[in-house]
Design a binder for these strands. Sequence first.
DNA 1: GTCTATAATGAGATAGAC
DNA 2: GTCTATCTCATTATAGAC
Lengths: 195, 195
Amino acid sequence: MARKPGSRSDITGPRIRAAARRLFARHGFAAVSMRQIAAEVGVQAGALYLYTPDKETMLVDLLKDHMDELIVAWDAAAPGGGPLERLQAFVRFHIAFNLDHADAVFLSYMELRNLGPENFAVIEGLRRDYENRLEAILTAGQGTGLFAVPDTKLATMAIIAMLNGVNTWYREGGRLSRAAVGDIYWDMVRKAVAA
Amino acid sequence: MARKPGSRSDITGPRIRAAARRLFARHGFAAVSMRQIAAEVGVQAGALYLYTPDKETMLVDLLKDHMDELIVAWDAAAPGGGPLERLQAFVRFHIAFNLDHADAVFLSYMELRNLGPENFAVIEGLRRDYENRLEAILTAGQGTGLFAVPDTKLATMAIIAMLNGVNTWYREGGRLSRAAVGDIYWDMVRKAVAA
DNA sequence: GTCTATAATGAGATAGAC
DNA sequence: GTCTATCTCATTATAGAC
């Protein structure tokens, strides 16, 4: 026997990526074998090497795609207006995007240590690009006297960490809707940076 | 040859735990082999099984000890006084303790997925015990009208996540001292929960 | 594009010597 | 309490058939 009837690389490729993302996030990069990924997709382990040169490249591609998508999505969603409106939009966007991409977000924070130095630098650079967009909002508000943050760099890190935390406890269908969570976090962020 | 001259279990035990904690935090539980841990300590892999029945037990013992130590340390450090004083103390304590136990903190958030359900429940229970101490402070302040948090549960999670974030960027000898970081985060937390 | 088969390596854990 | 040696099994990755 040879190739499976009906196999198509433009279908198998995305399915491999989705399975790898899910399994890496659930069990950790090192704990997941190529065999597990292949089994999840319904192919043999050797077939994965038609789509990636090795396991680490699979991971770094997932992370890079995720960070690219994040930045593109924010740049498309970011409103004009004053710092307060832009900050509110950022808070709501970040929570919503993270919940929609929980596995990728988790990976992008937890599995950086499995990357070689050059791949690590690429992902970290993309993350900084994204964080700089938030810091720019804080700096703008600081300039007009609207915000009073003791340190825009730390405030950026604090806000991102706080918002990322939502992913650790939020469950769909739980006590609070996504919109309600957005309201509550926006209230806390707004007050934290207020003059 | 047999046992090494001068070997002592009360020295080797702690060294094994320290090596495992460091290596698990750096590379991830699944990525670290028993041979690596043994090499770090200077014993053979087989010797590790004198101290632990298996690898997962090594991990869960590290996590349990860490959470116990955290709760004991806070209960010893927690001041009396009003909610504002207690909240300030909590912020500064949490940042300092986390920086002093960075590897264990990282493990306690990242490697829970490598635990069986019963071990997982134990660690999660301890974490909730700790978080409840913060929530009690917020509830007390809420009751006297000193704080105005829209949801004490979410505020608890938000504050912890924000403070935990310090560990991801803080470097000893960097731009800011620990005390300065404590000041800045306290400023943001104070405003975020203020009435 | 997927298969089977296999190479090369390393894993967790155990047995028994000293 | 640590050693060497070993069992058993899984791993990543490749080769070549179809």
